[in-house]
Amino acid sequence: MNKKFKTVCIIDDDPIFVFGATRLMKQYDFSESIVVYTNGREALDHLKPLMESKNLDTIPDLIFLDLNMPVLDGWGFLDEFTKIDPPKIMKVYIVTSSISNFDKQKAKEYAEAVKEYVIKPITPVRLKEIIKNN
């Protein structure tokens, strides 16, 4: 199978969304491996050592980031993540159920890291677009 991405990371505390997203990704051969973290803190704890290890294959190409999470939310994650110099291109997709204009506006402040602001639910159409655009 020719998968589009080596590694994709989903940071979201909603198991149903994670279930749906992984199912769709598998269905459309989105990625060889999918890593899931349930909040920003957990994600950073794992991603930081990975990014330092220089093992490029295990470093996610794409991060699907939810905003509203316990412990450390999506914004908190971005604040710390953007301080780390990435060893390769890592694109962040904010995938949230928030349609708030203010969240959208805020996302633009992280334009260097954040590729797109995607509103849930994630659909096959959106997934195909992402594949197409990468």
């Binding site: 149903i16 969304f17 749906g20 199912r23 949230t96 159920s97 928030s98 849930k120 639910p121 994630i122």
Partner: peptide, 18 residues
Amino acid sequence: VSHNLRSHSGNLSMLVSF
């Protein structure tokens, strides 16, 4: 509304599509 309700309805529509 913007988070919980929307995420539930999002999930719902996703599950419906499956």
